[in-house]
Design a protein around this nucleic acid. Sequence first.
DNA 1: TCATAACTGCAACTGTTTAACATAAAAATC
DNA 2: GATTTTTATGTTAAACAGTTGCAGTTATGA
Lengths: 133, 133
Amino acid sequence: MDEQKLENRNIKPTPIRILVLRTLLNSSVALSLSDIEMVLERADKATLYRTLKTFEEKKLIHSIDDGTGAVKYAICEENCECKPQDQHIHFHCVKCKETYCLSHAKIPQTKVPSGFKADSVNMVYRGTCASCS
Amino acid sequence: MDEQKLENRNIKPTPIRILVLRTLLNSSVALSLSDIEMVLERADKATLYRTLKTFEEKKLIHSIDDGTGAVKYAICEENCECKPQDQHIHFHCVKCKETYCLSHAKIPQTKVPSGFKADSVNMVYRGTCASCS
DNA sequence: TCATAACTGCAACTGTTTAACATAAAAATC
DNA sequence: GATTTTTATGTTAAACAGTTGCAGTTATGA
């Protein structure tokens, strides 16, 4: 169940958290804080904000910076540790404004200059998705 | 000269534009609108904003979304067209908060799902830079 | 010269993110 | 079970990035 998913990541399964989790699970695209706020009208924005922070911290979800000004969130895969080698590419469609996880497209590993240490990576294509072209 | 750089990209070389260009040329890291605003105290934020938009449109500079909430800008290479194959990786240091162009590290070409068409790509590592580790 | 276009400055406004503080609920301790 | 402590939520509002409208100024071109 969904509650189990939260407990697996050491997150106490409160009602709101379950709702947020389900909202993300039901979505085929990544959602911003305001997107979630519109779906869950009852819940307070600050609570949702903190819920997402908690989820991200516990690596239940990952955040995507798609250049729209609003960070989007999507569910991580089962054993994701959000390390560069775990992470996948995202695609932002400039027509429908949706951001998709390309879950099968892992981000290629590249070298970074000596002395630099990469903890995570964000890779987003911008263009037109299949439905919009 | 710097004015020539603007004219090469079909940008009329006004005083402010020359100042913004020089600010970016003098910087070893990518700069946000507010960064530039602090350096050029005289200039108005809206003017700087539109200047950066113009520069980006004319492909004199490129923008980087480094996850900090503020878009950063840096000078493009000479004949850059800002196509995915032109673009390079960026690195954001979470300690010093600076964002570096890894100009020699081109972004690896990957496939996108059929029907999708990528116009540009943003790839940013987050971690610790050489000076901070 | 005069009309037009381009650029700049000022002000205001939107939207996202975040903090401060108070309250409520849950968990732990006695 | 009552009390303390922790954790989660709600309310409010501030901070900040990005953006637009409008007026004034400067440059351009007929």
